[in-house]
Design a protein around this nucleic acid. Structure first.
Lengths: 346, 346
DNA sequence: CTGAAAGCGCTTACAG
DNA sequence: CTGAAAGCGCTTACAG
């Protein structure tokens, strides 16, 4: 069942059928209806590959999880982003192609090659740290790219991330307004761009409130997971000199730290207040529920889709978009809230 | 840059280049090397659409999140499954195409149509409850399909799910062996196939141990989320007649129930033991960490990929595969474990 | 071992 | 308003 069959059944040329499929207006209403009816009855569907071959447009967007966080879907933050992105880009008429990183680790193939192979119209690149070089080849190519948490500099690229300066600023400000003066930070040993920004902004924010920056209160976990936060907090407790409030660079780190504090008989938030970052789902179910900074994933995901759409369909100048974060106050920082308010479907 | 260019640069025909690309053996080593070198130098990459058009094979697998759980990536269980699946199917040379459900709700398009449009070689269908009819049209078509948590009956289909009978059996057995005799179950009002199976098996298991089945201890939450579990547990507490051990059909329900119990001054597990189901990440971070039944997602995801591969490449008879579940003992059921053991990266 | 040519199913100037 | 024909970039019998 192809366009030729439809054409002969309707007694018209394939060119006419093609125009009807593509909503050209210079077709008589009578012909249009007749052809439409036949397409309906036969259940005819055009072929994407033939269309792509002829037009060089695939209506496909490549999805790339780059860098060490190619934990892919499992990373709660990225999952949410890509989910919103999928919805929005779907509305705009695109489907998503997920590159299987596995295959090409072997072949030495790269993102650009695969993007060309599939004729994707554009790519979304979501990144952790230690991003592979191949990503930047793609970035430098004429294929439109939208980055999330990664700085893209290509002529047809653009990137979006939360305003990490503001994230730390809001946390420090919140602590400050609740009377805390002794604040600590849990970062990561080999930080990604994003974590690095949070760390630097934390220090800047302390200074802005004329608070001392005490190096022994700025610790670095081995990685971003709960286990790492647990270990670093344990070490902190043994050493004995604890701040009154702690900002952990990720929620998972905060979970681990809280666990360590509780094991040592320290109460959270009474003895030590803890704030995380990311607002992953589990924050709602821990005891105490974790105060955290929520990145506006809804906005990031939708913006990513709309900006990429524009990059694919017209000239764009935008380079970098920063999205405003939001402090989500639960119980781990002292300001207890109603459970119902912090609990959402999931 | 296409196959023609390469051919003329190498002074051979396009047929020869094509054969080299596709690893035919009837090519002289000399020619092969010469052509390979030119492809290397020019960075030539064949076009997927042309190849698909010519061969009717796309090396693409369609991913469909069907039914009410088209919360897509956000559902923790499905996310993990699809993640493993992606790895394995990638190794086998396939990439993933995610259908944008959005667009086609409008157009009245269906899964089968879109699968044809993109010439996908096969589909993976991951399902919640209230699956749309369109899924079964796909199932009935000649396109190979692998279902997860959905019963597929098509001639070229196969499905995989955890052995839900065993899930409930293991929980009841565990409770029993720890001395519990009064057991309750939290199900869902309008259950999916999977939840239904767990409920029925729970009752069967009670009978197997000659325990009374008390209808007032089998409750139905409005939905599968924490909030729903919280509400149903609240009602239960007010009514006053509580069992000593509860099996919740999902982890989220368990979280909500535990919260309700704690608010009422009941201790978990001392006053009431709770076991969830799914082993989502948050189980590790709650207080107490949640004992749950872990579906072997690793196995389900890998099996799904391998079976689908076989369905796409040769005749298969397999219809249904049941995967053995595993009880993960944490603290909410009474058998406290070391934190380090229950905490993993991620 | 290599090549000429038809075919896959569309789109798009162009002519009428 | 409609159609003939070239072209998109591959693959695949088939002939030599």
């Amino acid at each position: 069942m192809n366009i030729k069959t439809i054409a002969s059944m309707a007694g018209v040329s394939v060119a006419t059928v093609s125009k009807i499929i593509n909503n050209y207006t210079d077709i008589s209403e009578e012909t249009r209806q007749r052809v439409l009816k036949i397409m309906e009855e036969t259940g005819y569907r055009p072929s994407s590959s033939a269309k792509t071959l002829a037009t060089k447009k695939s209506n496909l967007v490549g999805v790339i999880f780059a860098g060490k966080l190619n934990v892919d879907f499992s990373h709660p933050f990225f999952v949410d982003i890509i989910n919103v992105f999928k919805k929005q880009i779907g509305l705009l008429g695109y489907d998503l192609l997920f590159f299987s990183n596995e295959k090409f680790l072997d072949n030495g193939e790269d993102y650009l090659a695969r993007s060309k192979y599939f004729s994707v119209d554009g790519c979304i690149i979501i990144a952790g740290d230690e991003v592979e070089k191949s990503v930047f080849d793609l970035d430098a190519s004429p294929i439109p790219c939208i980055g999330v948490d990664i700085e893209l500099t290509g002529a047809s690229s653009c990137y979006i991330m939360s305003d990490n300066q503001k994230i730390s600023m809001k946390v420090v400000e919140h602590f400050y307004m609740n009377g805390y003066r002794d604040m600590g930070f849990i970062g990561i040993e080999r930080p990604s761009l994003v974590i690095k920004e949070r760390e630097e902004a934390f220090i800047t924010s302390l200074k802005r409130f004329s608070l001392d920056v005490r190096p022994e209160w700025i610790l670095y976990a081995k990685d971003y997971a709960a286990e790492d936060g647990y270990q670093i907090a344990k070490a902190w407790i043994q050493q004995g000199d604890l701040p009154k409030a702690i900002f952990a660079a990720t929620d998972l780190l905060a979970f681990g730290a809280i666990r360590a504090f509780k094991e040592s008989g320290l109460r959270v938030p009474e003895d030590i207040a803890v704030v995380g970052c990311d607002d992953i789902e589990a924050c709602r179910y821990t005891d105490p529920p974790l105060t955290t900074v929520k990145q506006d994933k809804q906005k990031i995901g939708r913006l990513a889709a709309m900006v990429l759409f524009d990059l694919m369909n017209k000239q764009m100048e935008t380079k970098c978009i920063k999205v405003e974060p939001e402090l989500v106050i639960r119980s781990s920082c002292g300001a207890r809230q109603n459970w119902n308010h912090t609990m959402v479907k999931g």
